[in-house]
Design a protein around this nucleic acid. Structure first.
Lengths: 250, 250
DNA sequence: GAGTGGTCTAGACCACGAA
DNA sequence: TCGTGGTCTAGACCACTCG
């Protein structure tokens, strides 16, 4: 029946806009599932699929016995694509993303790189270091390690490529899962120079391991943000818990 | 049919232990859905519900056309309860959780508190400030604001109560959703004294707004961790995106 | 072309919340 | 008690991957 995108996505999108438009205000109750099913001319299962998406976004509650309630206040969450790509994220904010490649070198995988990318120790990898800017202001230093076959694609791109992500997707490299770790790091001399801060100053660090649909690691990245430029937001609930906390390893 | 917990949870639990036991190693393919359905004597829908849970935990991939693949390496994610409660989290690590109440006062809600807890400005709230320790070592300062009716419960508890969460649950206060924001904060004089660090030093900050099943805010908390003690981990994918990134407000 | 996961339907029963 | 969401079933068709 559906042409482009699944039915439940359309229902979800419609509900999202309805909520955004204030049709269902914060704290109000959503129509019952049966009612929505009738209204959209789909089965209850499809409605539930749509509502599950709103649920994990933290847009609505859900509990047995009562209609769903619209939750207010939450920060807008980002699509996976926006989250993974600095460029897309910046654009979605209306900011002008930029970047400058500081270094792009092949090398042999360190222990950590090998482990994160599931390569043999000493396997060939490509490392890219970039300063990322928002409307001209440096906000982040990005150190990414790619496995050889992907790194070669990156190395073949013009140095002023703004978004490697988008280019890699055009080459058929898909990113579908990512595991993030967020903590603090201390700016080293390089960071300090690139970001215009003092060495020794604390930075917000995000380490990220991305995998493709088959579960093969395609990227291992360490991003260091200047304090006060970004914050990370997470929604979770008893039903969906994507967040964790762990002791820092030393 | 089942008494205590839904069927799909049991299936999910079983698959989780099988994976943990190495029955399906990292990178290996899981049995097909139909096969699992037969094996567990449930319908395919139920198996899919179980697998969806493993999916959002980042334990397995999924894409059309191929069997699911077991993902390796990811840090173990925590249950919602472990995540929300410092006490439970510490216990799950085998550490001894501790805390010392520094201040417990009623007061009038500030603008931010009123907005986060969806109260009228100037409404009565309770504020608790605590130092949290892991096996005796201070790692975090917690500043929590409760709406009046919950704060009164907290105020009625013994000062050496280790876990307010657990006590509140016994009083029927349920936490089901939370929205977290993670960024940096600078230690003020109080933080410095309580944590034994220098004032002005950077701390890892987590701000958290928790709501009950009806969507009513029950807690607004700001936790500041000593650098190097904890890191936050998030898994997300094209299918489930609970993570966001946003510009810091100033 | 066979195998597999993604989507969708129709109907059933249960557990919980609120009146 | 009744409305509602949670769970479960059985079956169908499609879209994609891979040999």
């Amino acid at each position: 029946m559906p042409g482009a995108s699944p039915l439940y996505r359309k229902v979800a999108a419609d509900l999202r806009t309805a909520i955004a438009a204030g049709e269902y205000g914060s704290g109000e109750r959503l129509p019952a599932e049966d009612e929505l099913a009738r209204r959209y001319g789909v089965s209850r299962g499809t409605v539930r699929q749509a509502l599950a998406a709103l649920r994990t976004d933290g847009l609505v509650t859900s509990r047995r016995g009562t209609r769903r309630v619209v939750l207010g206040g939450g920060t807008r969450l980002q699509s996976f694509a926006e989250l993974r790509s600095f460029t897309r994220w910046a654009r979605s904010l209306g900011e002008e993303p930029g970047g400058r490649v500081v270094a792009l070198d092949p090398g042999d995988a360190t222990d950590e790189e090998a482990s994160q990318l599931q390569l043999d120790e000493g396997a060939r990898v490509f490392r890219v270091r970039r300063v990322r800017t928002l409307s001209g202001t440096p906000v982040m230093v990005e150190r990414t390690t790619y496995p050889e076959h992907i790194g070669e694609l990156v190395a073949g791109m013009p140095l002023d490529t703004v978004s490697y992500s988008e280019q890699l997707e055009l080459h058929g490299v898909l990113f579908t899962d990512a595991h993030h770790t967020i903590d603090l790091a201390v700016a080293d001399a390089d960071d300090a120079e690139l970001l215009g801060c003092r060495a020794g100053e604390a930075l917000l660090r995000e380490r990220r391991r991305s995998t493709d649909p088959a579960g093969t690691p395609v990227e291992w990245s360490q991003d260091r943000y200047l304090p006060g430029t970004v914050a990370f937001t997470v929604h979770n609930s008893t039903a969906t818990s994507a967040l964790g906390r762990r002791l820092s390893e030393r």
